[in-house]
Amino acid sequence: MVADLTETLAGFPPALCRRIVVKIGSALLVDPSGAVRDHWLRTVAADIAARRAEGQQIVIVSSGAIALGARRLGLPKGGRGSLEDAQASAAVGQIALSQTWATVLGERDLTAAQMLVTLDDLENRRRYLNASATLERLLSLGIVPVVNENDSVATAEIRFGDNDRLAARIGQAARADAVVLLSDVDGLYTANPQVDASAMLVERVERIDSAIEAMADGGSGSGMGSGGMLSKIEAAKIATGAGAHLAIITGHRDSPLSAWAGEGRGTIFQAAAGKRARKTWLAGRLTTRGRITVDAGAAGALARGNSLLPAGVRDVSGVFVRGDVIDILAEDGRTIARGLSEYDSEDAVKIAGRRSEEIAAILGEVSRSVLVHRDHMVML
Protein backbone atom coordinates (compact mmCIF):
# COMPACT_ATOMS: atom_id res chain seq x y z
CA MET A 1 0.00 0.00 0.00
CA VAL A 2 2.83 2.41 0.86
CA ALA A 3 4.56 1.75 -2.45
CA ASP A 4 1.25 2.14 -4.33
CA LEU A 5 0.54 5.56 -2.81
CA THR A 6 4.09 6.78 -3.39
CA GLU A 7 3.90 5.67 -7.01
CA THR A 8 0.49 7.33 -7.48
CA LEU A 9 1.75 10.66 -6.11
CA ALA A 10 5.03 10.58 -8.04
CA GLY A 11 5.21 13.64 -10.24
CA PHE A 12 2.18 15.17 -8.46
CA PRO A 13 -0.03 14.58 -11.52
CA PRO A 14 -2.68 17.20 -12.39
CA ALA A 15 -5.47 14.68 -11.81
CA LEU A 16 -4.51 14.45 -8.11
CA CYS A 17 -2.88 17.83 -7.45
CA ARG A 18 -4.73 20.74 -9.01
CA ARG A 19 -2.33 23.38 -7.69
CA ILE A 20 1.37 23.03 -6.88
CA VAL A 21 4.23 25.27 -5.80
CA VAL A 22 7.63 24.66 -7.42
CA LYS A 23 10.70 26.03 -5.65
CA ILE A 24 13.91 26.61 -7.63
CA GLY A 25 17.15 27.42 -5.81
CA SER A 26 19.99 29.73 -6.82
CA ALA A 27 22.43 26.93 -7.59
CA LEU A 28 20.05 25.46 -10.16
CA LEU A 29 19.02 28.70 -11.86
CA VAL A 30 22.40 30.48 -11.83
CA ASP A 31 25.78 28.99 -12.77
CA PRO A 32 28.93 29.59 -10.64
CA SER A 33 29.85 32.64 -12.74
CA GLY A 34 26.52 34.30 -11.94
CA ALA A 35 24.87 33.76 -15.34
CA VAL A 36 21.41 32.29 -15.84
CA ARG A 37 21.36 28.65 -17.01
CA ASP A 38 19.14 29.54 -19.95
CA HIS A 39 18.81 26.11 -21.56
CA TRP A 40 17.90 24.38 -18.31
CA LEU A 41 15.42 27.09 -17.37
CA ARG A 42 13.68 26.76 -20.71
CA THR A 43 13.17 23.03 -20.07
CA VAL A 44 11.54 23.95 -16.75
CA ALA A 45 9.29 26.42 -18.56
CA ALA A 46 8.34 23.65 -20.98
CA ASP A 47 7.44 21.43 -18.02
CA ILE A 48 5.27 24.18 -16.55
CA ALA A 49 3.54 24.82 -19.88
CA ALA A 50 2.76 21.11 -20.26
CA ARG A 51 1.20 20.96 -16.82
CA ARG A 52 -0.77 24.15 -17.40
CA ALA A 53 -2.14 22.58 -20.59
CA GLU A 54 -3.38 19.66 -18.47
CA GLY A 55 -5.17 22.04 -16.11
CA GLN A 56 -2.65 22.23 -13.27
CA GLN A 57 -2.01 25.63 -11.71
CA ILE A 58 1.64 26.45 -10.93
CA VAL A 59 3.22 28.90 -8.50
CA ILE A 60 6.99 29.36 -8.79
CA VAL A 61 9.17 30.31 -5.84
CA SER A 62 12.44 31.38 -7.41
CA SER A 63 15.77 32.20 -5.83
CA GLY A 64 18.57 33.82 -7.82
CA ALA A 65 18.19 37.58 -7.38
CA ILE A 66 21.24 38.02 -5.13
CA ALA A 67 23.44 35.79 -7.28
CA LEU A 68 22.42 37.60 -10.48
CA GLY A 69 22.84 41.04 -8.94
CA ALA A 70 26.24 40.26 -7.43
CA ARG A 71 27.58 39.35 -10.86
CA ARG A 72 26.35 42.60 -12.38
CA LEU A 73 27.75 44.66 -9.51
CA GLY A 74 31.02 42.72 -9.30
CA LEU A 75 30.58 42.03 -5.59
CA PRO A 76 32.58 39.28 -3.86
CA LYS A 77 31.17 36.19 -2.12
CA GLY A 78 28.20 36.06 -4.44
CA GLY A 79 26.85 39.27 -2.92
CA ARG A 80 26.58 37.75 0.56
CA GLY A 81 29.63 39.38 2.13
CA SER A 82 27.43 41.76 4.12
CA LEU A 83 23.77 42.62 4.57
CA GLU A 84 24.27 45.79 2.53
CA ASP A 85 25.85 43.84 -0.35
CA ALA A 86 23.02 41.28 -0.28
CA GLN A 87 20.36 43.99 -0.34
CA ALA A 88 22.06 45.89 -3.17
CA SER A 89 22.56 42.67 -5.15
CA ALA A 90 18.92 41.72 -4.66
CA ALA A 91 17.71 45.13 -5.82
CA VAL A 92 19.65 44.82 -9.07
CA GLY A 93 19.20 41.09 -9.54
CA GLN A 94 15.45 41.00 -8.97
CA ILE A 95 14.87 42.98 -12.17
CA ALA A 96 16.99 40.52 -14.13
CA LEU A 97 15.27 37.56 -12.48
CA SER A 98 11.75 38.79 -13.24
CA GLN A 99 12.73 39.59 -16.84
CA THR A 100 14.19 36.11 -17.24
CA TRP A 101 11.01 34.42 -16.03
CA ALA A 102 8.80 36.69 -18.12
CA THR A 103 10.85 35.75 -21.20
CA VAL A 104 11.00 31.97 -20.78
CA LEU A 105 7.33 31.70 -19.80
CA GLY A 106 6.32 34.15 -22.52
CA GLU A 107 7.95 31.87 -25.08
CA ARG A 108 5.38 29.27 -23.98
CA ASP A 109 2.48 31.76 -24.18
CA LEU A 110 2.33 32.04 -20.40
CA THR A 111 2.22 35.32 -18.46
CA ALA A 112 4.40 35.73 -15.37
CA ALA A 113 3.54 37.90 -12.35
CA GLN A 114 6.07 39.00 -9.74
CA MET A 115 5.35 38.85 -6.00
CA LEU A 116 7.96 39.91 -3.44
CA VAL A 117 7.31 39.11 0.21
CA THR A 118 9.04 39.23 3.57
CA LEU A 119 8.53 36.99 6.57
CA ASP A 120 6.37 39.65 8.19
CA ASP A 121 3.99 39.66 5.21
CA LEU A 122 3.05 36.06 5.95
CA GLU A 123 3.24 36.27 9.76
CA ASN A 124 0.78 39.17 9.94
CA ARG A 125 -2.71 37.71 9.58
CA ARG A 126 -4.15 40.54 7.49
CA ARG A 127 -1.22 40.71 5.05
CA TYR A 128 -1.23 36.91 4.82
CA LEU A 129 -4.86 37.00 3.72
CA ASN A 130 -4.03 39.76 1.21
CA ALA A 131 -1.23 37.64 -0.28
CA SER A 132 -3.56 34.66 -0.42
CA ALA A 133 -6.21 36.68 -2.26
CA THR A 134 -3.65 37.98 -4.77
CA LEU A 135 -2.39 34.48 -5.51
CA GLU A 136 -5.94 33.19 -5.92
CA ARG A 137 -6.84 35.92 -8.39
CA LEU A 138 -3.66 35.53 -10.45
CA LEU A 139 -4.15 31.77 -10.73
CA SER A 140 -7.80 32.19 -11.67
CA LEU A 141 -6.64 34.41 -14.55
CA GLY A 142 -4.23 31.77 -15.82
CA ILE A 143 -1.14 33.68 -14.66
CA VAL A 144 2.02 32.03 -13.30
CA PRO A 145 3.03 33.86 -10.09
CA VAL A 146 6.78 34.04 -9.52
CA VAL A 147 7.48 34.64 -5.82
CA ASN A 148 10.73 35.56 -4.10
CA GLU A 149 11.75 36.94 -0.75
CA ASN A 150 12.13 40.71 -0.87
CA ASP A 151 15.84 40.60 -0.05
CA SER A 152 16.40 44.25 -0.93
CA VAL A 153 14.63 45.32 2.28
CA ALA A 154 14.63 42.17 4.43
CA THR A 155 16.79 42.09 7.55
CA ALA A 156 17.54 39.25 9.95
CA GLU A 157 14.37 39.99 11.94
CA ILE A 158 12.02 39.74 8.93
CA ARG A 159 13.73 37.09 6.80
CA PHE A 160 12.70 33.56 6.00
CA GLY A 161 16.40 32.83 5.52
CA ASP A 162 15.75 30.21 2.84
CA ASN A 163 13.22 29.75 0.05
CA ASP A 164 12.34 26.21 1.12
CA ARG A 165 10.26 27.46 4.02
CA LEU A 166 9.03 30.37 1.90
CA ALA A 167 7.74 27.86 -0.65
CA ALA A 168 5.87 25.97 2.06
CA ARG A 169 4.31 29.15 3.42
CA ILE A 170 3.32 30.25 -0.08
CA GLY A 171 1.81 26.79 -0.51
CA GLN A 172 -0.34 27.54 2.53
CA ALA A 173 -1.35 30.97 1.28
CA ALA A 174 -2.15 29.60 -2.18
CA ARG A 175 -4.03 26.61 -0.75
CA ALA A 176 -1.82 24.36 -2.85
CA ASP A 177 -2.19 20.60 -2.96
CA ALA A 178 1.56 20.02 -3.11
CA VAL A 179 4.99 21.66 -2.99
CA VAL A 180 8.02 20.55 -5.02
CA LEU A 181 11.53 21.49 -3.89
CA LEU A 182 14.05 21.15 -6.72
CA SER A 183 17.29 20.27 -4.97
CA ASP A 184 20.93 19.39 -5.59
CA VAL A 185 20.11 15.87 -4.33
CA ASP A 186 17.27 13.59 -5.36
CA GLY A 187 15.62 13.36 -1.94
CA LEU A 188 16.16 12.64 1.73
CA TYR A 189 18.73 9.96 2.48
CA THR A 190 19.28 7.96 5.65
CA ALA A 191 22.69 9.67 5.83
CA ASN A 192 24.62 12.22 3.79
CA PRO A 193 25.18 10.38 0.46
CA GLN A 194 28.24 12.51 -0.28
CA VAL A 195 30.13 11.00 2.64
CA ASP A 196 28.33 7.70 3.30
CA ALA A 197 28.14 5.24 0.41
CA SER A 198 25.60 3.10 2.31
CA ALA A 199 23.06 5.94 2.52
CA MET A 200 19.65 4.98 1.15
CA LEU A 201 16.95 7.18 -0.37
CA VAL A 202 13.81 7.56 1.76
CA GLU A 203 10.97 7.44 -0.76
CA ARG A 204 8.08 8.30 1.52
CA VAL A 205 7.67 9.96 4.92
CA GLU A 206 4.33 9.68 6.69
CA ARG A 207 5.39 11.41 9.89
CA ILE A 208 8.32 13.73 10.60
CA ASP A 209 9.83 12.52 13.87
CA SER A 210 13.23 12.69 15.53
CA ALA A 211 14.55 9.86 13.35
CA ILE A 212 13.67 11.78 10.17
CA GLU A 213 15.15 15.01 11.53
CA ALA A 214 18.38 13.19 12.39
CA MET A 215 18.87 12.41 8.69
CA ALA A 216 18.98 16.10 7.74
CA ASP A 217 22.22 17.89 6.90
CA GLY A 218 22.01 21.63 7.47
CA GLY A 219 24.65 22.61 4.92
CA SER A 220 24.12 24.09 1.47
CA GLY A 221 26.34 22.21 -0.92
CA SER A 222 26.64 24.92 -3.55
CA GLY A 223 27.70 27.76 -1.27
CA MET A 224 25.37 29.92 -3.40
CA GLY A 225 22.07 29.35 -1.63
CA SER A 226 20.99 29.45 2.00
CA GLY A 227 19.10 26.17 2.37
CA GLY A 228 20.11 22.62 3.16
CA MET A 229 18.28 19.43 4.00
CA LEU A 230 17.41 20.79 7.44
CA SER A 231 15.51 23.70 5.90
CA LYS A 232 13.69 21.25 3.62
CA ILE A 233 12.56 19.20 6.61
CA GLU A 234 11.27 22.37 8.24
CA ALA A 235 9.47 23.22 5.00
CA ALA A 236 7.94 19.74 4.95
CA LYS A 237 6.56 20.26 8.47
CA ILE A 238 4.84 23.47 7.37
CA ALA A 239 3.48 22.05 4.11
CA THR A 240 2.23 18.73 5.45
CA GLY A 241 0.70 20.44 8.47
CA ALA A 242 -1.31 22.57 6.04
CA GLY A 243 -2.59 19.50 4.21
CA ALA A 244 -0.18 19.66 1.25
CA HIS A 245 2.24 16.97 0.12
CA LEU A 246 5.88 18.00 -0.29
CA ALA A 247 8.48 16.41 -2.54
CA ILE A 248 12.25 16.77 -2.71
CA ILE A 249 13.60 15.89 -6.15
CA THR A 250 16.77 16.59 -8.08
CA GLY A 251 16.98 19.63 -10.30
CA HIS A 252 20.28 18.59 -11.85
CA ARG A 253 18.79 17.45 -15.15
CA ASP A 254 16.73 18.94 -17.94
CA SER A 255 12.93 18.91 -17.64
CA PRO A 256 13.09 17.91 -13.95
CA LEU A 257 9.33 17.74 -13.42
CA SER A 258 8.79 15.51 -16.46
CA ALA A 259 11.73 13.32 -15.48
CA TRP A 260 10.35 12.89 -11.97
CA ALA A 261 6.89 12.02 -13.30
CA GLY A 262 8.51 9.38 -15.48
CA GLU A 263 10.76 7.64 -12.98
CA GLY A 264 9.32 8.70 -9.61
CA ARG A 265 12.68 9.05 -7.86
CA GLY A 266 12.52 11.42 -4.91
CA THR A 267 11.14 11.78 -1.40
CA ILE A 268 7.47 12.52 -0.78
CA PHE A 269 6.31 13.79 2.60
CA GLN A 270 2.67 12.84 2.92
CA ALA A 271 0.17 15.55 3.85
CA ALA A 272 -1.46 15.48 7.24
CA ALA A 273 -5.21 15.72 7.62
CA GLY A 274 -6.41 19.20 6.70
CA LYS A 275 -6.84 21.92 9.34
CA ARG A 276 -9.05 24.99 9.41
CA ALA A 277 -7.49 27.97 7.62
CA ARG A 278 -6.73 29.94 10.80
CA LYS A 279 -5.18 26.90 12.46
CA THR A 280 -3.08 26.19 9.36
CA TRP A 281 -1.75 29.74 9.49
CA LEU A 282 -0.94 29.37 13.19
CA ALA A 283 0.88 26.07 12.71
CA GLY A 284 3.04 27.42 9.92
CA ARG A 285 4.16 30.61 11.65
CA LEU A 286 7.89 31.00 12.12
CA THR A 287 7.76 33.66 14.85
CA THR A 288 5.85 33.91 18.14
CA ARG A 289 5.69 36.54 20.87
CA GLY A 290 5.95 34.40 23.97
CA ARG A 291 5.88 30.96 25.56
CA ILE A 292 3.72 29.31 28.20
CA THR A 293 4.90 26.11 29.87
CA VAL A 294 2.17 23.81 31.18
CA ASP A 295 2.06 20.79 33.48
CA ALA A 296 1.28 17.24 32.40
CA GLY A 297 -2.39 17.54 33.27
CA ALA A 298 -2.85 20.62 31.11
CA ALA A 299 -0.88 19.03 28.26
CA GLY A 300 -3.23 16.05 28.35
CA ALA A 301 -6.28 18.31 28.39
CA LEU A 302 -5.01 20.19 25.34
CA ALA A 303 -4.45 16.91 23.50
CA ARG A 304 -8.10 16.05 24.18
CA GLY A 305 -9.24 19.28 22.52
CA ASN A 306 -9.71 21.51 25.57
CA SER A 307 -8.77 25.16 26.01
CA LEU A 308 -5.77 26.20 28.11
CA LEU A 309 -6.81 27.16 31.64
CA PRO A 310 -4.56 29.23 33.95
CA ALA A 311 -4.44 26.46 36.55
CA GLY A 312 -2.21 24.28 34.40
CA VAL A 313 0.38 26.99 33.66
CA ARG A 314 3.83 26.62 35.21
CA ASP A 315 5.74 29.47 33.55
CA VAL A 316 5.17 32.48 31.28
CA SER A 317 7.97 34.07 29.23
CA GLY A 318 8.16 36.82 26.64
CA VAL A 319 6.28 40.08 26.25
CA PHE A 320 2.97 39.83 24.42
CA VAL A 321 -0.49 41.36 24.28
CA ARG A 322 -3.92 39.85 23.86
CA GLY A 323 -4.24 38.41 20.35
CA ASP A 324 -0.51 37.71 19.91
CA VAL A 325 0.63 34.24 18.85
CA ILE A 326 2.33 32.26 21.62
CA ASP A 327 3.82 28.77 21.89
CA ILE A 328 2.62 26.30 24.53
CA LEU A 329 5.34 23.99 25.89
CA ALA A 330 5.28 20.77 27.87
CA GLU A 331 7.43 20.56 31.00
CA ASP A 332 10.20 18.83 29.03
CA GLY A 333 10.50 21.86 26.71
CA ARG A 334 8.66 20.42 23.69
CA THR A 335 6.38 22.82 21.83
CA ILE A 336 3.02 21.04 21.83
CA ALA A 337 0.63 23.77 20.69
CA ARG A 338 0.39 27.32 19.35
CA GLY A 339 -2.41 29.81 19.76
CA LEU A 340 -3.69 33.34 20.27
CA SER A 341 -3.33 34.61 23.83
CA GLU A 342 -6.45 35.89 25.59
CA TYR A 343 -4.28 37.94 27.98
CA ASP A 344 -1.35 40.34 28.00
CA SER A 345 1.82 38.69 29.32
CA GLU A 346 1.78 40.81 32.50
CA ASP A 347 -1.66 39.52 33.45
CA ALA A 348 -0.83 35.96 32.31
CA VAL A 349 2.01 35.91 34.87
CA LYS A 350 -0.36 37.02 37.64
CA ILE A 351 -2.94 34.30 37.00
CA ALA A 352 -0.56 31.44 36.16
CA GLY A 353 -1.37 28.39 38.28
CA ARG A 354 -4.61 29.88 39.61
CA ARG A 355 -8.16 28.61 39.23
CA SER A 356 -10.44 30.40 36.76
CA GLU A 357 -12.78 31.59 39.53
CA GLU A 358 -9.85 33.44 41.16
CA ILE A 359 -9.03 35.56 38.10
CA ALA A 360 -11.49 38.39 38.82
CA ALA A 361 -10.15 38.89 42.34
CA ILE A 362 -6.53 38.88 41.14
CA LEU A 363 -7.00 41.24 38.19
CA GLY A 364 -9.78 43.32 39.73
CA GLU A 365 -12.26 42.73 36.94
CA VAL A 366 -14.37 40.00 35.40
CA SER A 367 -12.18 38.42 32.76
CA ARG A 368 -12.01 35.47 30.38
CA SER A 369 -11.72 32.06 31.99
CA VAL A 370 -9.09 30.67 29.56
CA LEU A 371 -5.60 31.74 28.56
CA VAL A 372 -5.86 30.28 25.04
CA HIS A 373 -9.20 29.18 23.62
CA ARG A 374 -9.30 25.88 21.76
CA ASP A 375 -10.82 27.57 18.68
CA HIS A 376 -7.72 29.77 18.46
CA MET A 377 -5.17 27.03 19.07
CA VAL A 378 -3.52 24.30 17.01
CA MET A 379 -1.70 21.22 18.31
CA LEU A 380 1.77 20.68 16.86
Rank of each mutant, 00 (worst) to 15 (best):
R314A: 00
I326M: 07
Y343C: 01
D327L: 10
V313W: 03
S341E: 02
T335V: 14
V321F: 06
D315E: 09
I326Y: 04
V313Y: 00
D327N: 10
Y343T: 01
D347C: 11
I326C: 07
I336C: 08
I326Q: 02
D327P: 04
G323S: 12
R314E: 00
D347R: 05
G323K: 12
L340R: 12
L340S: 09
G318K: 06
S345R: 02
V325H: 10
V313S: 00
A330D: 14
R314D: 01
R334E: 15
R322F: 09
D347W: 08
E342G: 09
D344Y: 02
Y343L: 04
V321K: 08
D327G: 04
D347Q: 13
E342F: 06
D347M: 08
D324E: 14
V316R: 00
R322T: 09
L340Y: 14
V319T: 12
I336S: 05
V325I: 14
T335S: 08
D315L: 03
S341L: 05
Y343W: 06
V325E: 06
G323Y: 15
G339L: 08
A337C: 12
E331S: 15
A337Y: 02
S341W: 01
L329I: 11
A330Y: 03
R322H: 09
S345E: 04
S317C: 09
D347G: 09
V313G: 01
D324F: 06
D332A: 15
I326L: 10
D324S: 10
S317D: 09
E331H: 13
R338Y: 10
A330R: 11
V319A: 12
G318M: 12
D344W: 00
R322V: 08
V316W: 01
D344R: 01
R314K: 10
S341T: 06
V325K: 07
V319M: 14
R334Y: 15
D332C: 15
D344C: 07
V316D: 02
S345N: 05
R334W: 14
L329R: 04
V313F: 00
D315M: 03
G333F: 13
V313P: 00
V319D: 15
V325L: 13
D344S: 07
L329F: 04
D347F: 03
D344P: 02
G318S: 13
V319W: 14
I336K: 06
F320N: 00
E342V: 10
D332H: 13
V319C: 15
V321E: 14
I328M: 03
D315W: 03
I326P: 01
V325Y: 08
L340T: 11
G339V: 09
D344V: 01
V325C: 14
G339C: 12
A330N: 13
R322M: 08
R334I: 14
V325G: 10
E346I: 10
S317E: 08
D315C: 03
E331P: 10
L329T: 08
R334G: 15
R322L: 06
L329Q: 06
G333P: 15
I336A: 06
Y343I: 01
